[in-house]
């Protein structure tokens, strides 16, 4: 299953792509395939602030609903409005077009709590 090398991951299957003090967040290929066809994404509002591991969005498929937790603390800069009309973008492109939100990071040291791509690969092997 595809895992992007330079992203960081959580045990809840979110990814974050850090560029300077900004992070783009989404859910992993594994998460989208376990959920199945996604029919709805509940997005946060711009300027909302979240602590690390706080729930900030949720996704629904026909038979499941899953909360999305923020991998790091920060303030929402932008949300992916395309997901309102096309929630299936997460299924089609979990790591690119299916991104959920961009946040301004509050504390870069929080990356210590996240998994690298290699760690996440091992983590997936341990649970599947």
């Amino acid at each position: 299953m595809e895992i992007i090398d330079h992203y960081l991951y959580t045990k809840e299957h979110e990814w974050i792509n850090i560029e300077e003090n900004q992070g783009t967040i989404g859910i992993s290929e594994y998460a989208q395939s376990s959920l199945g066809d996604i029919t709805f994404v509940e997005l946060p509002a711009a300027d909302d602030e979240f602590d690390q591991a706080a729930q900030f969005a949720s996704v629904e498929s026909v038979k499941a609903a899953s909360d999305i937790y923020s991998p790091m603390s920060g303030k929402i800069i932008e949300v992916n409005e395309d997901l309102v009309e096309e929630p299936e973008l997460i299924n089609k492109s979990a790591y690119e077009n299916g991104w959920i939100a961009k946040i301004k990071l509050a504390d870069l040291s929080e990356t210590e709590d996240l998994m690298t791509a290699d760690d996440y690969r091992k983590f997936l092997e341990s649970i599947v």
């Binding site: 029919t39 709805f40 629904e60 026909v62 038979k63 499941a64 609903a65 909360d67």
Partner: peptide
């Protein structure tokens, strides 16, 4: 439809 709102899927939420 929209069963993801209901107790048998969402449980405590």
């Amino acid at each position: 439809t929209l069963q993801a709102r209901e107790q048998h899927i969402r449980r405590e939420k």
